[in-house]
Design a protein around this nucleic acid. Sequence first.
DNA 1: GTACGTCGGGACGCAACCGTACCGTCGTCG
DNA 2: CGACGACGGTACGGTTGCGTCCCGACGTAC
Lengths: 202, 202
Amino acid sequence: MLRGEITDAIRRAVMKELAAVGYGRLSIEAVARRAGVGKTAIYRRWPSKLEMVLEIVSRVAGQSLPLPDTGTLRGDLEVLLRILARALRHPLASQIIPDLLAEAARNPQIALTLQEALRANQRDIGILLLGRAVDRGELPAGADPDEAVDLIVGPLYWRLAVARTPLPEAYVPRLAAAVAAGLGAIEPVPSGDAVAASAHPS
Amino acid sequence: MLRGEITDAIRRAVMKELAAVGYGRLSIEAVARRAGVGKTAIYRRWPSKLEMVLEIVSRVAGQSLPLPDTGTLRGDLEVLLRILARALRHPLASQIIPDLLAEAARNPQIALTLQEALRANQRDIGILLLGRAVDRGELPAGADPDEAVDLIVGPLYWRLAVARTPLPEAYVPRLAAAVAAGLGAIEPVPSGDAVAASAHPS
DNA sequence: GTACGTCGGGACGCAACCGTACCGTCGTCG
DNA sequence: CGACGACGGTACGGTTGCGTCCCGACGTAC
């Protein structure tokens, strides 16, 4: 019978350690030290550093977020971007997410897990958001959902996770307006080539 | 008299090693091994791993790219995005850039260097591009250049460096059109708050 | 109240790197 | 053509982390 409090302490320590030194330098000893725990307690729960991180991260990232219908594309975008901004400003998340994404370029296991936990989720939200806008007549049908997601998530991710520039007061509403305009200008895909091509992400 | 061929071999080895294992795991021994060189040759040139990487990376990233004036905002965007896409598809760059950006969140030295080498450059290009469009009457004046850069670079960076989804044939032109529309919808900053706030990036 | 299993802690041998020092070799400047 | 210096290679002691094992101490379920 593993004690849950210990498991939680380890989980917290892994997150902090991930933020502090990154996946590449993460060591079991450091996690145990930070959690105030013997290495034994960790090896009793996970067979390796990789599986430990994957389990812990996907548990945190896996939770799907409900997206309320505000009645307009721009309103929906603003809500979504605000949620994203809050997540990306979290000090732990803003360190861990870029680190794991960079590591995912090297490690197929990590790539797959993040794919399932994060991007699949986002893609669903993107499709939902686009579908609503099309139903309302705000957008023409036929746009590639992947391209739409790029347009929606890209700027804010760049701002917060890459450039790391602070957000001015009215940034999110302005961005929502600009993104809405951009979405309106996406031309429909010729036949189905983009969808077919992007159905097999590497 | 240090031999230049040796220096070049080390530089190449550092780039490959950075791509393969990332900055966190980069070891001098591995670089020397890959370059077919003694550790001495490396320590003779740089005092530490950090300074070595900074010098090598900023030398590569520091070169500014000329941006031809195509006569239209959309045309300028398409050229710029195409250049960006080519850079981000380079196998070494696509591994090294996200890795160093993630590391920059932890290491102020790296953050500063990347800031100077990459983002300052981009910001200048963004200002240039916006200025031209305003002169042509394609865009209203008063938009925050930082927000514009987010909108321009974000989607493509997300697509190529984060999601790592392959680009369909006509993606770049479509994205250029959407971004142009988005730029047109950016509302001018009230007074100067966003500029003032973003003048002190962390 | 007893027996079992997890707990923290410590020790193990092994491997990788660190940064430095010292070789004998070889290219190059003067 | 001689001397200087950078070269690759090797070895050094020290540190860190690996994954495993064993210990005595709790604490909990029965």
